[in-house]
């Protein structure tokens, strides 16, 4: 399952590192920005990530209505079974029992394995490893204090993580944004053949939350 954010992309990478064959990405394009299940900022750009990595994309639209969206997820997974003969799903779930148990039910009913390699991970170790392994990740949405508009579009690098650690301690926030404090977008991962360059974006921030909306982006060869 692929949202284009850091958790699903890194989970995919972990699967590859252990020898799993990634047949396709499955993306749910939710029209509900408040979805409990699916990440929404810049979700349409998973198409560009699919092109960058050469991994096909199975995309499914959903209204994002609680519990109803699970039927749309099931449709998408069924399509992946039909078109790519998948044996299992990799998710980027870290702590959310709400998300994990629902995906587990769907996978069990469809006879699939469900793997969540970031489950209960050490979040500092995870995001530091991600940066050190060459991922290029930007902040695509902020939804909690003390995040403000200045965080949007910023690249997650080691100085950024140091800053994040300070505020996560002070405000009891999840370092990986697992509590929905922030969302991310991956511009480059070690399994991408090209990187994503953002040409145009706008920042929408009001009432304590905001999004970095990518209006135009393209693929560029890595140097």
């Amino acid at each position: 399952m692929f949202s284009g954010g850091k958790d699903s992309v890194y989970a995919t990478w972990r699967g590859m590192q252990t020898g799993l064959d990634i047949a396709c990405f499955i993306t749910l394009n939710s029209s509900n920005e408040e979805s409990y299940m699916f990440h929404t900022p810049n979700i349409e750009l998973t198409r560009l990530q699919s092109d960058a990595s050469g991994i096909p994309l199975v995309e499914q639209k959903t209204d994002g209505i609680k519990e109803e969206e699970l039927k749309d997820l099931t449709l998408a997974i069924r399509r992946a079974i039909r078109e790519y003969s998948i044996d299992g799903i990799i998710t980027g779930a870290i702590q959310s029992v709400y998300q994990a148990s629902r995906i587990e039910w769907i996978c069990h009913n469809l006879g699939l394995w469900c793997l969540s390699p970031l489950w209960l991970c050490n979040q500092e170790l995870y995001i530091t490893s991600m940066i050190n392994e060459g991922f290029r990740v930007i902040i695509a949405g902020v939804f909690a204090d003390p995040f403000d508009a200045s965080w949007l579009g910023k690249r997650m690098d080691l100085p950024f993580i140091s800053r994040l650690k300070v505020i996560s301690k002070k405000y009891s926030l999840s370092l990986a944004g697992e509590g929905g404090e922030y969302e991310s977008f991956v511009c480059y991962a070690p399994f991408f053949h090209k990187k994503i360059v953002v040409d145009d974006a706008v920042i929408n921030f009001s009432h304590g939350s905001g999004r970095y909306i990518i209006k135009s982006a393209r693929l560029q060869q890595m140097n």
């Binding site: 972990r14 799993l20 990799i90 394995w113 793997l115 390699p117 970031l118 489950w119 209960l120 991970c121």
Partner: peptide, 14 residues
């Protein structure tokens, strides 16, 4: 499926 180590053993180790 060595990826299972990350999900079921690492949390106990931690």
């Amino acid at each position: 499926v060595s990826l299972l180590f990350d999900e079921f053993v690492l949390p106990v180790i931690r």
